[in-house]
Structures are given as C-alpha cells and as structure tokens.
C-alpha cells in the first residue's frame, strides 16, 4: 500500500478533493475559521498521519500543484495592471501606506521574535509573514528559512486578519472602507483580501493591490533587514 501512496496521482488527487470539499463546506457554513485552505490542509495532514504516509510521498504529487505558485505570482502583475486605475486618485498615499505598513510588519516581527529569544531559523522563516504565500515562500528560500514553516504561519496570519482585522481596526477608530481594505491586503494578503471584498468591492480592490505592492516591498527589504538584525544571511 505504501508504494501506492508514492504515486504522484495520490498527492494530486487528495489535494484537489480536499480543496473542493473544503470549499463546499465553507459555502454551507460561511464561518471565518472554516477558510478552505485551512480545512484542506488539516484534512490532508490527518489523512497522512492516520495512514502513516510520509510527507515526502504525498509531495511527489503535491509538487505538481505547488509548481503553479510561480506563474500565479506573475498573474498578480496582470491583476495589478487591471485594477490600478481604480486607486489612481489615491496612488501616492496608497503606496506610502502600504510601504510604511509593510516595512513595519517585517521590522516588528523580527524585533519581537529576537526579544522573545526565538531561534534564528524561525525568525528567517517568519520575517515575510504578511505577504501572499507564494512570495513569502520565495523570500524564505532566499534567506535560508524553512518554507513550510513560512507557509503554515502565513496562512495563520491571513486567517487572523480575515477573522479579526476589520473588528480590530474599527475598535481603533478606523472608519474608511478603503483604509480597512489597504490594511487587510498589507497585513493579511489574499485571505485578508477575501474579507475586504465583504466590506465593499472597492475595499477589496485596494486590498488586492496592497497585497501585490507589499509583496514586492517585502521581497526587496527582507533579506537586508534580516542581515542587519541576524548578521548571518550571506
């Protein structure tokens, strides 16, 4: 049976089925923590543990799915071109807000983790925690972190932003919908953007664009900030 699970089709099929099932579940219950990606991941992990299947065996198929992360990041460039007209009147302030927010996101997480004496490889894996998973994974590969830790925590950050972001911002006195959208895209990437679209269509567009811009900013600065604070990155 172990040989069967080593066939790439197993990893491909269980990923597709888990994702499709998780989306159905969310449509039925519409509850923030039931976000499809989380449900699918938990389901697959449980399945692998129950049937005693190695992650490496699952990933023989899984890597055919994660291959598409590369082209998806390129596709974000197309999305940005399509939508940036809509933020044109606010462009400078928008870019400033994403840049300052994005940089403080990387800075604060590095400083807090250092203060709490967390090992360097975890800091390297979490520095890019605010940006969309495919970009965060690429950043982590460059900074010698562990991409799987990045992916797990980035998804958790997204879910946190999705579930609590608008509530926290409103409590802190933020009223503008586009401010909420920009903040969600900057701090909580695509999963936060899904929530921004629930606030309003325009908030969603700002959020999606903030996700793209912060992806680029974080990719540019993270290696240097890590080098500055940890001094280990080549």
């Amino acid at each position: 049976m172990q040989e069967f699970f080593q066939l790439p089709i197993f990893g491909v099929f269980i990923s597709l089925i888990a994702f499709a099932g998780a989306r159905k579940l969310q449509k039925k219950f519409n509850y923030a923590l039931l976000t499809p990606v989380l449900v699918a991941i938990v389901f697959i992990i449980c399945f692998l543990l129950i049937f005693n299947i190695d992650f490496e065996d699952y990933n023989r198929g899984g890597k055919f799915i994660s291959f598409f992360l590369g082209p998806s990041v390129v596709a974000l460039g197309v999305f940005f071109y399509e939508k940036y007209e809509e933020v044109k009147q606010n462009l400078k302030v928008f870019l400033l807000s994403v840049a300052v927010g994005g940089i403080s996101g990387v800075l604060t997480v590095i400083i807090f983790l250092l203060l709490l004496k967390v090992p360097d490889f975890i800091i390297e894996s979490l520095a890019a925690k605010s940006v969309t998973t495919p970009i965060a994974i690429e950043i982590t590969k460059l900074t010698n972190g562990i991409p799987e830790i990045t992916a797990g925590l980035v998804i958790a950050v997204g879910i946190f932003g999705n579930a609590f972001g608008p509530f926290i911002l409103k409590k802190l006195g933020i009223k503008s919908k586009i401010a909420i959208g920009t903040a969600l895209g900057t701090a909580a990437h695509g999963i936060g953007t899904a929530r921004a679209f629930e606030e309003s269509k325009l908030a969603g567009v700002y959020s999606g664009l903030a996700m793209c811009v912060n992806g680029i900013i974080t990719a540019l600065i993270t290696p240097y900030l890590l080098q500055l604070f940890l001094g280990s990155f080549p």
Partner: peptide, 26 residues
Amino acid sequence: PISVAVIASTVITLYISAIIIEKFGK
C-alpha cells in the same frame, strides 16, 4: 513567543497602513 510576536506585529501593520490612508487619502 511565535503567536505573541506574529499577532502583535500583524495588529501594528494593520493599524499603521490603515491610519496613513485614512488621514491622508481622499
């Protein structure tokens, strides 16, 4: 420590980007 650092950093990021665009945006 991971949860504390990541949640605190996320809230700060959310607030900073929101307040800039709320104060200076149209």
